[in-house]
Design a protein around this nucleic acid. Sequence first.
DNA 1: TTGTAAGCGTTATCAG
DNA 2: CTGATAACGCTTACAA
Lengths: 341, 341
Amino acid sequence: MEKEVTIYDIAKQLNLSPATVSRALNDHPSINSNTKELITAKAAELGYRSNAFASNLRRQRTNTIGVIVPRLNSHFVSSVLSGMEKVANERGYNLIISQSQESVKKEKASAKTMFNGRVDGLLVSLAYDTEELDHLDVFIKKGIPLLFFDRVSTHTKATSVVIDNVKAGYDATAHLIEQGCQRIMHVTGNLKRNVYTDRLKGYKLALIDHNLPYDESLLMITDMSREAGIDVAQQISNMYNKPDGLFITNDLCAVSCMAALKKESFRIPQDIAVVGFNDDPVAQVIEPNLTTIHYPGEEMGEIAAQSLINHLNGLVNIQTTNTIVLHFELVVRESSVRTTG
Amino acid sequence: MEKEVTIYDIAKQLNLSPATVSRALNDHPSINSNTKELITAKAAELGYRSNAFASNLRRQRTNTIGVIVPRLNSHFVSSVLSGMEKVANERGYNLIISQSQESVKKEKASAKTMFNGRVDGLLVSLAYDTEELDHLDVFIKKGIPLLFFDRVSTHTKATSVVIDNVKAGYDATAHLIEQGCQRIMHVTGNLKRNVYTDRLKGYKLALIDHNLPYDESLLMITDMSREAGIDVAQQISNMYNKPDGLFITNDLCAVSCMAALKKESFRIPQDIAVVGFNDDPVAQVIEPNLTTIHYPGEEMGEIAAQSLINHLNGLVNIQTTNTIVLHFELVVRESSVRTTG
DNA sequence: TTGTAAGCGTTATCAG
DNA sequence: CTGATAACGCTTACAA
């Protein structure tokens, strides 16, 4: 295990001061281009690698961004992370990723780790049941920029990157109505989370705009799991006045529900038309293919990381752009299209 | 933005030396339990947080583990990462995650970042076409432990966590043979990667053991994408002597292939029985449900992280346990089961 | 059990 | 354009 090369070694060998070496290695403007060349050459020759800790310690920043997500193993989340990683990497930042596993407790622990790890900024998508945001206040107090994405906070005034969930909910519902559905069931998640409340709002608005009544018995709050999907199918099957449309705000849940409905010999979309949310790969596998809201995960990740980094570099003040809203798209597939109304 | 509290502040307020404070905060054995209590109390009171950089700089270790994966947005990979994150988090390590996007070039860049980031150890799953491993040699030279998982290196002598891909390939193929298949097509990925060569070996062995000929025209090397799946279906459809069994080493690819075959009115499993690999969520959505090899992603991540951390803490020497082989399971579903042989 | 003091490798400030 | 020097906050011999 060879000894680490430092700027002192380079300096000594070239009869320069460490300060000059440091400057050369950091593209400082006021440095002679010849000396710079010499230094970079020597650095390469000696196999020098910069010591990030020393640098961080001195500069009081880490070039590290913390990311807290509800869970890692979801198609949407991993797309987001992929986008974040791309951008962060390009711009010389590292990502420290942590999952809350949908639990506030774990989310708090993650936040603490990030805080102690002195991340330069934090990207957060909230857990299922987070209410208080005290664990994130410390960041704000310390002036560490905080940016929410997807599952954002409605209380804290932090920048967030989202889609227009109200409109998405509206579009999904309106689409079902246009297909002739009159009784549309809405299956969604914990209403503490903006994504679910907003989609519900959209659902209600679409009903109103099309002169359909809002029937509370057609709203189901679930944990959006596959089991929940099966459960929903069961309940529908037991209903006297069955729905003829189904808007489920998660494709995985929607797909398991469809499979269960099919077992009960419901015809999709004739008996019941279905719309999901996320455009997960399963949407194109289930038969009939699932109509869903396409939701730009990778792009969301890129933009979130981009914004945070721009802010960190003083290019843009994150506080001024308070919410970034991305486009989404209703992708119509067979699960919802009725040939006749 | 308040000033950071340091051990000096604590020391001053308690009339102690910073050394004592440091020791107390690190559970040093030779420290008076009373003073220790005093110190921890004061630390809490002042909102002290340890500065990892100063500590790292001093101790020459980072408590950070680097992870390089081919891509982030795959079900399998995100399960692995989820497992790694759990373990790392429990044991006080951070994860720096980077994706090679299946390109050697990007993989090299990632390795360099990790190297400069002075990770304590590295967990790697190789990109599609990586051949030379020079970019990883630097870690070995520096004595930084390197552990491969899933897509491992056959050359470098580093610990790896895998499943027995030969056996998995064998089991999948044997299962098809037991279902009466005589001409089994094998669709797989770049043979530079152990996972694919080994599965091919298993395929060949199963054929031999069951007295079936190995027909090179039934081997297809693809990029395992969905498009590849469609392409395979097309080719099968154009073949004169069609296969009656299909072993595709990736569920996503298998599923798109099945969908395409169904469009060409192949009956699955009657005309062609299909086995996939990975047990991706889509396997349980496609109809008929896909028989596949279940592959413990989360567990693989946990074990990989566990082993590396144990090694870092001197509990186990990683060099002694050279390969950790996990169990897999052939999950039989409808896509391969023929009522009569 | 506690204190002293050196040093980890950078970078920012100031001076030249 | 370059150099000297003082931090950054922590750990660890060594000494007391």
